[in-house]
């Protein structure tokens, strides 16, 4: 098993960091710890020293660009890998391949790619992307096809619905090419994952819900003679005792602004993301009954988009739950 940590590029603090999405009510709060390069370097070095394989960076309109942030952090670490998140729709695959090549060079091959197709139509349109949900995944599929060919070192032409390139590709293969992580819970997403991804990444749903998805993706991949590694994205509140951990969850909950919780429900409703819908369904916007499976707390998702669950418990409990997902 590999463990990655999270790089809080939008800031850090002792409360659940609110969504960085601008909503009608309750604007973006400023973090108690600004994400200066110095602070991020500390987090990265701590993750490195304590044995994590890499760190994930968030992407979105409210985040600093992960390519640039991670490139800077490679110079403050020695062996930590960087799971750079990006939206395929916003950059040409050939250019992304060139960025990956430069990143491998300056970091000593420490790049992992996290391909995020995007699930909020408002945000997508703000970026200038007007494709619908299923078309976006079709584009991601083509994107990854072109990206992989660009790593191969062979000249190639490509004509698809979304990309067309002629006489493309650098002269040398990129070795090692970065591993590709991919998330998305819809049927089109599962199809792309099974065909193109090295690791299929899921937000932390209860084990039973995860199991169904794993089965589907595995069988889809097997049908194409592939296998896909599986990854899960969870927050963790682990303490010496279970009681302490739950006290901490309560504290986080009591710090959440009810207006913000309310606003986030409207936000989730507008989203096209199947994964986000599954997350939102776990808590239904209610702070009550948030322990949706043993030690799995859905409170984070009340005010924050994306991965919205945390494992809460003492160290043994959390370790056992992690084993269950395995």
């Amino acid at each position: 098993m590999r463990f990655h940590w999270f790089l809080p590029t939008t800031g850090d603090g002792h409360a659940v960091r609110n969504s960085t999405i601008r909503l009608g009510t309750g604007g973006v709060t400023s973090p108690t710890r600004p994400a200066t390069l110095g602070y991020l370097a500390q987090v990265a070095r701590a993750a490195e020293a304590t044995g994590f394989t890499g760190v994930l960076t968030p992407t979105g309109s409210g985040c600093p660009d992960p390519w640039i942030t991670c490139a800077a952090l490679t110079q403050h670490t020695d062996r930590l890998k960087f799971l750079v998140a990006f939206r395929p729709g916003f950059v040409l695959p050939t250019l992304a391949a060139q960025q990956a090549r430069a990143f491998q060079e300056i970091s000593g091959d420490r790049l992992l790619l996290n391909v995020v197709t995007g699930g909020d139509p408002v945000e997508q349109r703000a970026y200038g992307d007007f494709l619908g949900h299923d078309d976006r995944y079709a584009r991601t599929d083509e994107f990854l096809d072109v990206l992989r060919r660009s790593f191969s070192g062979e000249r190639f032409d490509f004509t698809g619905r979304h990309y067309r390139v002629q006489d493309a590709g650098p002269t040398d293969p990129l070795d090692p090419a970065p591993e590709i992580y991919f998330g998305g819970a819809s049927a089109p997403a599962e199809r792309v994952a099974s065909a193109r991804a090295d690791t299929y990444l899921m937000w932390g749903e209860p084990p039973a819900m995860i199991a169904e998805r794993i089965e589907r993706v595995r069988s889809l991949a097997a049908g194409q003679g592939r296998s896909v590694r599986l990854g899960i994205r969870l927050h963790v509140i682990a303490r010496d005792t279970s009681a302490e951990a739950w006290r901490e969850a309560d504290r986080l909950l009591s710090g959440m602004d009810p207006a913000r919780i309310e606003a986030m429900q409207h936000y989730y409703a507008r989203m096209e993301s199947v994964g986000q819908a599954r997350m939102a369904a776990l808590h239904g916007g209610s702070p009550r009954a948030l322990e949706v499976a043993p030690n799995l707390w859905a409170g984070v998702g009340l005010v924050r988009e994306g991965a919205g669950t945390a494992l809460v418990g003492d160290y043994d409990e959390v370790a056992r739950r992690l084993q269950e997902y395995r």
Binding site: T36, Q42, R45, A46, A49, G51, R79
Partner: peptide, 23 residues
Amino acid sequence: RGGAPDGYAYIEHMADVARAAES
């Protein structure tokens, strides 16, 4: 780490503490 030297020396942690306190 994993039985092999990982190039880490305690000075790295001292540097991190110094930077944490500075920030």
